[in-house]
């Protein structure tokens, strides 16, 4: 019995190792080839680089306008996510605490809107908005992200707030606290686990989003995903540069993940089960 368990474990371990190797292999390839000149890549993509050659990185950084794109991505993600946290937690508080027909219907519309694919909106979106405002700016993009993201985030907060007893706010109201104080001083600190979920789910989506920025932004305001698209088209034969560029583009989010790994995993599982 015991030895059987041990063999079973060994098999599981072996399968796990092979699979995890398959999952990281693409990253290993990117890493190895980012340091190689083109000729070496074509000769053998699996070989270890002969020397640590940073030229690919320099050229990729220049072409992608790395620091500008990184700054744009950070600004857009941070502002959108913060705004989504503030707006949707407040909206969810309102909808969960005012038990009127209006708030019920509004909540249902928000939930239903989550199955509307972006593709069903993008065409009218572009031609309607483009007539009134210049879309090519980061503020417009943030505005759109709030509009698209508010439903899911409100839904997540709503589920959590509904479980908090009303007595709590009522007691605070008796003590003379106004709505804003009740919300920010008492409610919001209790929402921390959901706030983490909302932050992570939205940050991943906005950081990696490609379609919306592609429609809205141009060169100077481009985000990191847009800047990597360069390597798809005209530079597609400069493999080394492309690999260096991709490595630069994925590094920030991977580092971020490794630091906040636990929050990421629990964020996704609470977010999904809701």
């Amino acid at each position: 019995m015991k030895s059987q368990g041990r063999t079973f474990r060994k098999i599981v371990f072996a399968v796990g190792s092979v699979l995890s190797f398959a999952y990281v292999m693409p990253f290993v390839l990117v890493f190895l080839n980012a340091f190689k000149p083109k000729f070496d890549i074509l000769e053998n993509p699996l070989s270890w680089p002969k020397q640590l050659d940073w030229t690919n990185f320099q050229q990729a950084m220049e072409k992608m306008n790395f620091f500008r794109s990184l700054t744009n991505s950070v600004i857009i993600t941070v502002i959108s996510v913060s705004a989504l946290i503030v707006f949707s937690s407040m909206l969810a508080f309102y909808l969960a605490r005012t038990k009127t027909k209006f708030s019920k219907v509004t909540f249902l519309i928000l939930v239903a809107s989550m199955i509307v694919p972006f593709q069903a909106l993008m065409i009218p979106f572009m031609s309607i908005f483009a007539q009134f405002v210049s879309l090519n700016n980061r503020a417009a993009l943030v505005f759109f992200y709030i509009g698209f993201g508010v439903a899911l985030s409100t839904f997540l907060y709503h589920g959590f707030i509904s479980k908090i007893p009303m007595d709590l706010d009522e007691a605070a109201a008796m003590d003379g606290a106004n709505d804003l104080t009740i919300f920010w001083k008492i409610m919001f600190p209790m929402l921390r686990p959901v706030t983490a979920t909302v932050a992570i789910v939205n940050a991943l989506w906005i950081w990696n989003d490609f379609l919306l920025p592609r429609l809205v932004l141009t060169q100077e305001t481009q985000t990191l995903p847009l800047s990597t698209y360069l390597f798809y088209g005209q530079y597609s034969t400069e493999y080394g540069q492309a690999m260096a560029g991709l490595l630069l583009a994925v590094l920030p989010i991977i580092v971020f993940y490794l630091i906040l790994q636990r929050q990421f995993i629990s964020g996704i599982s609470t977010g999904a089960v809701k």
């Binding site: 990696n208 490609f210 993940y257």
Partner: peptide
């Protein structure tokens, strides 16, 4: 980890 990375990359 592959999940952290956008579709284009």
């Amino acid at each position: 980890v592959p999940n952290l990375i956008g579709g284009v990359v």
